[in-house]
Design a binder for these strands. Structure first.
Lengths: 259, 259
DNA sequence: ACCCTCGCGA
DNA sequence: TCGCGAGGGT
């Protein structure tokens, strides 16, 4: 039996909304440690890896491992049925054919329950190796989101060049060219505003803005984003959950051009 | 070489947004005194005349006159890429094929640059004579905007009758009739709330609300609007820029009806 | 161009 | 806590 209770329904709502635009169906793998999801987007380019640690729940119990094959579109609709401050509990049997979502109002005596039919979804669970990266950037997630939104007006590709004292984002298109240059910067008062660059080797990589645009849907999950880059290697874009866990996106750079 | 730096990107944003709904393409004429634009709206009825004086810039330099043919739609997108408080600098060569827009964050080490391809736009530069008008009205721009918004629900035309002690706006349509009457009024504490009428001759004129609706897009540029009217003469609607300059609209009254 | 959502201020 | 304004998405 799985029983996971969130203190507020917003967390799960944000998580599902962060992913549902690029992944329609996925397996929630529930273990005693929490819930993980691995999925590729519909074009099989972007790899999504989610961990909701058991610390993210106010109560959590998972007697034996269980896999919930969920249609995120429908699940998202269900989650929106609660009020943001409601307790949200996920419930499933050991061999479930459905998952129950229960909302409880904190003050009032109001309980709502929604059961969602599960699906059988094949997916190999990929073992993702911990990698060495050439560069690790830590920056405000909202700032990264703005850069992606602004530059996607100009072309389909975003080039990222990191040197020891700057990060440069560039997009070149028909009507014009845009670039944003960030210098590492430490804000004492608001550390989440800081831009931090750890660099072993400079990198010069290009990514599809279509996919980056899916990635930034997760902006509300964390005030900062960590970007790990290495030549000819899928980049890692990570949003850490305050309460324990993360949402990670792996995206391979474009190879073909100019070399 | 042209180099014009605004202390805040909002001013240019407001100016472009005020005009781009009625004018798609226009020439920015840059001289040592500042930047002027003259253009007619797509239906060739409304004449727009902009002056951004060099005092509007925190730094301004224009070695020789240069004309920048700009697609306002694209330009508006670029200007939105800055944050409102950023410095905004326009840069162009002497014979440019593009104009560069540079944003600089005031605190952080962030610089973004956007280059926009220029276009070749024909437009005669019209000499607009200083006119004698029968009536000059000065009033809060927001109040004028509300009158236009409210009365355009009723018909396509707005009638303005000015007598020595009142200004009457009327719109008569199928479903009903509306009118707003203003008396001249002086607010000592908030002069920008005053309604001021200088009248040499009474006027009774009618304008197309479609065009007035374009004009009021400029409301945020100034807390007051100056309206100059004379019989059978294009009316002048002027928003003065605090920092030096103006945005003027010239609109001919309707003739044919009822006389 | 219009509608919806999020953030900030009262 | 509610309302208003701004920004982003469809």
């Amino acid at each position: 039996m799985l029983e996971g209770k969130f203190d507020e329904s917003t967390l799960l709502k944000k998580i599902v909304d962060s992913v549902k635009d690029c992944v329609k169906l996925c397996n929630f793998n529930c273990t005693e440690h929490g819930i993980t999801v691995q999925a590729v987007d519909d074009s099989r380019v972007l790899l999504v890896s989610l961990l909701v640690g058991q610390t993210a729940f106010s109560e959590y119990r998972c007697d034996r491992d269980v896999t919930l094959g969920i249609d995120l579109e429908s699940f998202s609709k269900i989650i929106k049925c609660g009020n943001n401050e409601d307790y949200l509990t996920l419930l499933a049997e050991d061999s479930p054919d459905s998952v129950m979502t229960i909302f409880e109002d904190k003050k009032k005596e109001r309980v709502s329950e929604y059961s969602l039919k599960l699906m059988n979804i094949d997916s190999e669970f990929l073992k993702i190796d911990d990698m060495e990266y050439d560069t690790v950037i830590n920056m405000p997630s909202s700032e990264f989101a703005k850069i992606v939104r602004d530059l996607k007006n100009l072309s389909e590709s975003l080039n990222i060049i990191v040197t020891k004292d700057s990060v440069k984002f560039t997009s070149e298109g028909e009507v014009g060219t845009g670039s944003v240059v960030l210098k590492p910067y430490t804000d004492m008062d608001k550390p989440e505003e800081s831009v931090n660059v750890h660099l072993d080797n400079p990198v010069d990589l290009t990514f599809g803005l279509k996919y980056l645009n899916d990635i930034i849907k997760a902006t509300s999950l964390s005030s900062t984003i960590t970007i790990k880059l290495a030549d000819k290697t899928p980049a890692l874009f990570e949003y850490k959950l305050d309460v324990g866990g993360y949402l990670r996106f792996y995206l391979a750079p474009k190879f073909d051009e100019d070399e």
